[in-house]
Structures are given as C-alpha cells and as structure tokens.
C-alpha cells in the first residue's frame, strides 16, 4: 500500500456520498476487514473509507416481499436475528460456519460479496436465493444488480471505483414450504475455508413428502458460484425418497465433473460431495435422510 493512503470514517451515508462524489482517486471501502486487512499490501488505494459503523448499512428488515439486509451487517447479527423466515435457513447456516466468533463479530455480508473469494461461504447462498444487490454509485444513484452479475473473477467484481454495496435483497416467493440449506467441507470443523460448499433451495411439502422447484449451487469450485441449471429438470416434482437422494448426489457429482474435470482437486471434491449432499438434504428436510440411502 502506498504511504500516502488516507482514511475517512463517515458518520452517515450522506457524508460518505458527498465525499465520494468529489474524490477522484482510488477508493477502497473497509468494513469488517477480515479479508482486506490481510491483503493491504496488495492494494494501493488513495483513500480507505470505513463503513463498518454506518447505521444505514447495518440492519435486517423482514417484509412481506422479502428480506433486506444491510451490506455492513455482521454475520453475528444475522445469526442472532430471531425472525428470519425459514427460506433463509441457508443464510443462517452459512453465516454460522464462517470463521470464528471473533471473525463473525466483524465480517459482513457485503464484505463477503466484495471480496469475491471463491471459497466465500455466502456466495452460493446468495446465488441460490436469487438475491439482488443495491449499489451506490459515485454519482449518488442507487442501482439494483442481480447477485449473479457482481462477481467477475477470483477476487474481482464488476463494481467500479467508488461503488459501494449497500443492501442485499432476498426475495420471498409467495409459496409455502420454501426451504433452503447450506453445507461446507473444509480441513477443520470450525474456522475453516471451504474446500467445497453448496446451497440448495426447494419447495418441500412434508405432508406429501414432495419436492419441487429445486435450485442447487456449488461453491469453491471456480471463481464464481456454479449453478446446476439442469438439476431442476430431473429433481423437481417427485417424492423425496432414496432414488431422489441418489439422483441428488449424481447431480452434484456431474456438476463437479463439469466444473473442474482434470484439476488436481477433482477426485477429492467428487468423493466428498456425497457427504456434503447428505448434510445438505438433512438440513433441508430434517433428519429423514437415512445413512443407507447415501
């Protein structure tokens, strides 16, 4: 980092908007800093702006049409929120497995997106739940962008200099029994960076044991989350039974084959995806997945 880097800690969003609208240099936002501080040497901003304590970026609002979470909301705040709807189970599961308590007390939802680390636990979840991101431009305008259009490459996004993530919108479909889940595999049980993670969302009717409208997204197998577009066709509108479990595993194995065939990590990830699938389905529908089925 250049020596001339300055810092700025705005009191509110208006102050920040005024500052970035007239600043011509390279801007770097910092919130929790749990990724950025480790990589400060690689960055060279003219101005570091702390957004971690902006009240306008730290909130959780549950409405009838969806859930809005501020970009500077920490994972600990998300995990301890009492009223998140069931469809956001994957968000809670992923948030609870990120880093350690100390990291979750600092790390933010927006930071997980802006860092664009391939192993980012929240990335497959945001893709799976079709999230929409609000971006504050330097002009002062707020633009809504689909999450899928944010990440460009490993550690890089399509955000321009000065663009700030402000809000993550989780749309709620007007369908009952909508559920979601997240699971990860890493070298340790806790405080671990995912070697493989995944999120699934589906409509599951426990009374009829029926699955429909399923979305599966794999993470940590490329620069962006990898959505299994074809899975919905043969995993939806069928009963949740052992055949479903086998097909679910096959879908994830095919996804890994498609994404990383030939890479050194391919055999490992193809092998562990069976256990990951079991964890996902147990989180999704409860402890009804028998060990024998997997």
């Amino acid at each position: 980092m250049r020596i001339s880097t300055s810092f700025f800690r705005p009191e509110n969003l208006c102050e920040l908007r005024d500052a970035i609208s007239v600043f011509d240099g390279q801007i770097q936002y910092i919130a929790g800093g749990t990724d950025l501080v480790l990589n400060l040497e690689k960055t060279s901003p003219d101005l570091l702006i702390d957004v971690s304590r902006l009240p306008e970026l730290s909130y959780i609002n549950v409405t009838g049409s969806g859930v809005n979470i501020g970009a500077a909301t920490t994972f600990n705040m998300i995990n301890s929120h009492p009223d998140l709807p069931r469809i956001l189970s994957a968000v809670i599961d992923a948030g609870a497995q990120i880093g350690s308590k100390q990291i979750r007390n600092r790390a933010t939802l927006g930071g997980n997106i802006a860092s664009a680390v391939p192993g980012g636990d929240m990335l497959p979840v945001l893709n799976c739940l079709d999230c929409e991101i609000d971006v504050l431009r330097k002009t002062g305008d707020i633009e809504k962008i689909a999450f899928n259009q944010i990440i460009r490459a490993q550690g890089a996004t399509y955000l321009a200099n000065g663009d700030l993530l402000t809000n993550v919108h989780f749309p709620l479909r007007s369908v009952e029994n909508r559920v979601s889940a997240f699971a990860k595999i890493g070298p340790r049980e806790t405080l671990t960076i995912a070697r493989l993670n995944a999120s699934v969302a589906a409509t599951y009717d426990a009374a009829t044991n029926w699955v429909s409208d399923i979305t599966i997204v794999l993470g940590a197998i490329g620069p962006k989350p990898h959505r299994l577009w074809e899975a919905n066709a043969f995993l939806s509108n069928r009963p949740f039974d052992e055949h479903f479990v086998q097909d679910f595993i096959a879908a994830l194995e095919n996804g890994i084959d498609h994404a990383i065939q030939g890479r050194a990590s391919h055999p490992f990830k193809r092998s562990v995806v069976k256990g990951l699938s079991r964890d996902l389905l147990q989180s999704l529908v409860g402890p009804t997945v028998s060990e024998e089925a997997i």
Binding site: F7, G32, G33, T34, L48, K101, Q102, I103, N105, R106
Partner: peptide, 8 residues
Amino acid sequence: AVNSCMVL
C-alpha cells in the same frame, strides 16, 4: 470479541 490484528 474481535481479532485486533484484523482491525485497522
């Protein structure tokens, strides 16, 4: 609790 090595 936070890691002070990760806070500027």
